[in-house]
Nucleic acid binder design. Structure first.
Lengths: 100, 100
DNA sequence: ATCATATGTAACTAATAGGTTTCATAAAGG
DNA sequence: CCTTTATGAAACCTATTAGTTACATATGAT
């Protein structure tokens, strides 16, 4: 599962899609496809990969589908990594601590 | 550059290499290769990809090379993403704030 | 009912990634 | 000097990924 997330994030178009859906919640696949030069089908495949990684949640609405961003998988990855590499992340946390 | 990092993190072996180097600073490419069933050359290619993404720093020492993990690129990615998705990350930050 | 619109599926092609074998280089030790 | 050990590079094969075109389905509007 963590592998699906890293895999999904590996393609720049897919990260762009995430960004767009994040700032345009409920958008359709057509709107997403319009962002790119490549074909609608190519974009649809990217969307499917993001959906499998649970980075996008999709809800059917009539003949379109509404797309929503889901931070959860990224949060999971982040938590696991910061736990493992806490020694590195402790520095910024401390400065934040001081700020608080 | 951010693309190279995501790309580098996409392969499970490369993430394993990062983990190993992180807990075995200064290790050689031979030691890293010994972790995997696949050939030394295949692993060397993974190491090169990690080096290009600056996730590994390499120092020559006699006839071996010492490998070190570099959190910086991940930190950069993390900073950019948390900035962009701050609304999601604010929740845990707030709970941390309360804790502090 | 008909037609346009939104999306999905299948089959195929091209590009990239991951791996192998083989040969080369270069440092350390007897 | 010669051998062993550590690593690098080139050529090649295979698997996977990314993209295309063509066809299918289903909803909404006229």
């Amino acid at each position: 599962m963590i592998d699906e997330v890293f895999q999904a994030l590996a393609h720049p178009h897919r990260r762009q899609i995430i960004d767009f859906v994040h700032q345009t919640p409920g958008c359709s696949s057509g709107e997403i496809a319009a962002l790119f030069e490549s074909s609608r089908i190519a974009v649809a495949k990217h969307i499917k990969i993001l959906e499998k990684a649970q980075l996008l949640l999709i809800e059917k609405s009539g003949r379109t589908k509404q797309h929503y961003f889901n931070i959860m998988p990224i949060q999971t990855v982040y938590d696991r990594w910061t736990d493992q590499y806490s020694q590195f992340f402790s520095a910024p946390l401390n400065s934040f601590k001081n700020y608080v």
